Computed example of a mutant assay.
Amino acid sequence: MTQMRILGMISGTSHDGIDVAVVDFGLAGGTLTGTVEFTASTPYPPELRARLVAALPPAPTTLAEVCVLDTLIGQSFADVAAAAIDEAGPVDLVVSHGQTVFHWVDEAHALGTLQIGQPAWIAERTGAPVLSDVRIRDITAGGHGAPLVSVLDALLLAGHQGVAAALNLGGISNMTVVRGPDDLVAYDIGPANALVDAVVSSRGLSERGFDEDGRIAASGQVDERLLDVLLDEPYYRLPTPKSTGKELFHLAYVEEAIARSGRRPGDADLVATLTELTVRTVAREVLASGADLLVVSGGGARNPVMTNGLREALPGVRLTFTDEYGAPADEKEAIAFALIGWCTAHGLPGTVPAGTGARAARVLGTLTPGAEPLVLPMPITDRPRSLTLRR
């Protein structure tokens, strides 16, 4: 049974809500096809998001609060999964990435990662088996557990003649560079929306907590002195593969950079400067990769200040969006986790070692049974060579 309907779910490093995708996968002749039957993005309830933000690094928290959030986020994921199944129909498997609350990196090595959102709530609510905790197995094999989306990027871009780069602009920017079927590298570049969102939320610049359509950035001017300080971040000089998160890039990080710069930019100028930080760091990596194609996804794909800045900085690179490849830019990661679920169900690794730095590829995740006995398909031995997504 290579045909499976899988529901993928994730709340990313912007921790603003839950993205979901239902994909019907089938394998024929080495090509995997996926029909994207349903996508949606559901914001967290404001009180839950505020409680989550208050518990994230560098804020202190307690095990009691982690336990409460694990339950409340698990219940939110269960609600979203049940709503998706009500609209799209039954699924064979739910894959829940959950909410990352800590990614433990010591210099260039990932040592642990924590995603919360108890999967048993999803299994109880939907009756479907749930695959969760998908990053840690890669870390135990010496990888970073990120960016796991590289397994999707490698298959989607397999047919490109040249060097292609898939860029995700979430809270953190990450990129997969594909030079051939077995020649790729993937890593976290740095902050995409994380620092902008932190400033916008803390200063009450937008009710939605982010710079919608880049309007705030467009109204400001880049502070070059502050930008120079921000660009002098040691993380950018670490070798790849590497990973990072809000453990490093948070509001206090911005405030410390402002203090070192000796400047005091206004709100719009600060947002413009942080947006330009994303443009500069990403453009530098794309140029170094030699990519002639850049395929963009994530919340930042909808920010014209960010994407137009990249177009101007990369005149020889064709910039497009994952929508062109059948994956809506806002739900690409949910589709990626559905793909990882299909791989795990068939006994196939869900990682590309060159993308995460692991010693070898690993089958990912922990399974929580649903209402019926857990029955998996017969394992298959040959990984798909490409993926075609359609809607």
Rank of each mutant, 00 (worst) to 15 (best):
I122E: 13
G34E: 07
G355L: 04
G266S: 13
A128M: 10
A120N: 04
P379S: 01
Y325S: 09
K242T: 01
R49Y: 07
L287G: 12
D79L: 11
H250C: 00
G299R: 01
A291C: 09
V151N: 09
R125I: 03
Q99T: 09
G8H: 10
L364S: 01
V296A: 02
W121D: 09
V36T: 12
A120K: 03
Y253M: 00
R237I: 01
D86N: 13
H346W: 10
G170Y: 04
L227G: 03
V80P: 01
L155H: 04
I258K: 03
T320F: 10
P315C: 15
D86L: 13
V101L: 15
A165W: 02
M1L: 14
E372R: 15
V149M: 05
R51I: 13
W104C: 11
A301P: 14
L319H: 14
G350V: 05
T42K: 06
T100Q: 08
L131H: 14
I139M: 00
A252N: 01
E312T: 12
G350K: 05
A128N: 09
L374M: 06
N174A: 03
G34F: 01
D223L: 05
N174V: 13
T273I: 01
M306V: 15
N193Q: 13
Q99L: 14
S201I: 08
R125S: 07
K332M: 02
L152P: 07
G365K: 03
P45W: 14
L364Q: 04
P349R: 05
R208I: 13
L293M: 11
H109K: 15
R390M: 11
S297V: 09
R135E: 01
A164H: 02
A301S: 10
D267M: 09
I10P: 10
F102D: 15
T275I: 10
V80Q: 10
L293F: 05
E212S: 08
D223F: 05
